[in-house]
Every structure is written in structure tokens, then in C-alpha cells.
């Protein structure tokens, strides 16, 4: 299927969205970009959670070292 071509078009279109408005490209590709953005959001969410874990762990490491 033409997912690969959609991804290349995505890169091209993302670079010249100025004339059409920032949102309208999301309607293109038969709304495939919506899925793309949704996956990005989930990635960012999971990485935020990992950073939260990282911080908690560093705090404990610090506490153990102090003793």
C-alpha cells in the first residue's frame, strides 16, 4: 500500500504548511496523520512517565549514598 508514500508526503507537507494553515494538513492522506500524531502523543506520554521514574530512582540512590 502507499503508507510509505504517505510518510514521504508527510515530510514534504510538514515543511510547507504555511499557506494552507497549520491544521489542514491533518485532513490530508485520508486522515492518516491523525494516527501519526496520536502515536506521537503516546510516545511522549510514556517517555514522560520514564522521566518520572528516573527522578524517583535518583532520589533514592541519593538517600542510600548519604547514609
Amino acid at each position: 500500500m502507499n503508507i510509505l508514500s504517505i510518510l514521504t508526503v508527510l515530510l514534504l507537507e510538514a515543511s510547507n504548511t504555511s499557506s494552507v494553515g497549520a491544521e489542514s494538513w491533518m485532513y490530508g492522506g485520508e486522515k492518516f496523520y491523525v494516527v501519526f500524531v496520536v502515536i506521537l502523543i503516546i510516545f511522549f506520554g510514556i517517555f514522560t512517565f520514564l522521566i518520572l521514574l528516573e527522578r524517583k530512582l535518583s532520589k533514592i540512590e541519593h538517600q542510600i549514598k548519604e547514609r
Partner: peptide, 21 residues
Amino acid sequence: VTAMVFGALGILTGMVWAKFT
């Protein structure tokens, strides 16, 4: 706490999906 993180993701992804449908 973990459920809230996934709930927030559900809301955010849902908002994007809702906007374009």
C-alpha cells in the same frame, strides 16, 4: 497514579482524533 497517566493520554489522543472527525 499510572491509570491517570493513561487516562490523560486517552484524553489527549481523543482530543486530536475528535478535532479531525
